[in-house]
Design a protein around this nucleic acid. Sequence first.
DNA 1: GGGCGATGGTGACGCCCCGTCACGATTTCA
DNA 2: TGAAATCGTGACGGGGCGTCACCATCGCCC
Lengths: 208, 208
Amino acid sequence: MTNIAYLPVRNTAGKRERTKVANRQAILDAAREVFGELGYETATVRDIIRRTGLASGTFYNYYRSKEEVFDALADDGARRFRPILRAQFEQAADFESFLRGAIQAYFDFLAKEHESWRMNRPAGETFPHARSTPEVVAVFDEVREAFDKVLEREHAPKVDLDYLTAACIAVAREVGDKMLERRPVDTQAATDFAVKLILGGLPALPRL
Amino acid sequence: MTNIAYLPVRNTAGKRERTKVANRQAILDAAREVFGELGYETATVRDIIRRTGLASGTFYNYYRSKEEVFDALADDGARRFRPILRAQFEQAADFESFLRGAIQAYFDFLAKEHESWRMNRPAGETFPHARSTPEVVAVFDEVREAFDKVLEREHAPKVDLDYLTAACIAVAREVGDKMLERRPVDTQAATDFAVKLILGGLPALPRL
DNA sequence: GGGCGATGGTGACGCCCCGTCACGATTTCA
DNA sequence: TGAAATCGTGACGGGGCGTCACCATCGCCC
């Protein structure tokens, strides 16, 4: 009888494998903290790795550069947001409810992440706006696909989907940013604004 | 008779002053080229200064860092765009014509600048999205002011001006970016899209 | 026009961060 | 249990950064 319960922690593969995922995660966590405290520009690879207690060389066993670890963080965010977006799509009755659900979800997501990012960052410091990492592109594509399907379902006139997607994401991003600067942070109001702008504009768009 | 024509090049102040503006401009020009060829991240202060033939120390007599010279370039663009924007405002009959004029002007401006920036830059390389330099903030403020006045003039209902401005600039930026990726670059179509989206959305916006 | 103080270009220098690599410890597998 | 593979380690060379003492040149005034 090979009862797994008798073997200590055998349920999570070999030790090598375990420390690998642990290190990768530790670096990611440290990077999130350091970027939050020092700002992206100021932070150095060594600031990040120092916080993990690992040696400097070890960093490069996991990521090639500060940029790559930042992208990994962005990917991480996108990966966590994707299922939320998908859920909104699946339970949405029409375009309006999808749009509202998606934007509301994004703003809530933003507000929640806000804390873990902007912590003590020196004012004025800015992040590189999310790059085109695979997962981020995937979110963009997913939004376009969802738009396509929902508008198709409603027999809405064909419009420039690429522009529409870009515009919607742009509005969500920028209004989201402004929202975070206000006290109190009102995701409801911001959502209402963004949704009504887009929804009102949609019928006026040039047809293809 | 102190005829200026007899004095050679006395019209442009002393030599010190002249070389100063010349150097500053040379650095700015070199920076534009280098950023265009190498991308912002890859470019170094020494890449820039090397192209001017000046010594490395001289760079720091004019700018404190690569970031600052980039900001100066952004300021430069904003400063050149501002009068265009202002002209659109002054000759606009109503909100629609102002919006259309401003966005068309911005897209034309973008398309024109496009050449001098993206030259041979390695694909995927990205610029830090325009920072909050004074002149850039001024453009943002000017847009908001213009919106305010035009909407006031038309007795349009009060809406969240900050969100509206942010949203419009966001749409213009992002649709502009996408526009530049297409061949041929069609500023007309892009303008039409952006204007109709915003104009359609405006009446639907929540009132204050 | 000549001498003197101020201005600003110069490039070597020290500093720090980067990415690598040879080494050794630890784990895996037979 | 011993050999092989894996991976953490930190010292090291390379290079970009920002500074500074030096000196050529300019502006100014006698």
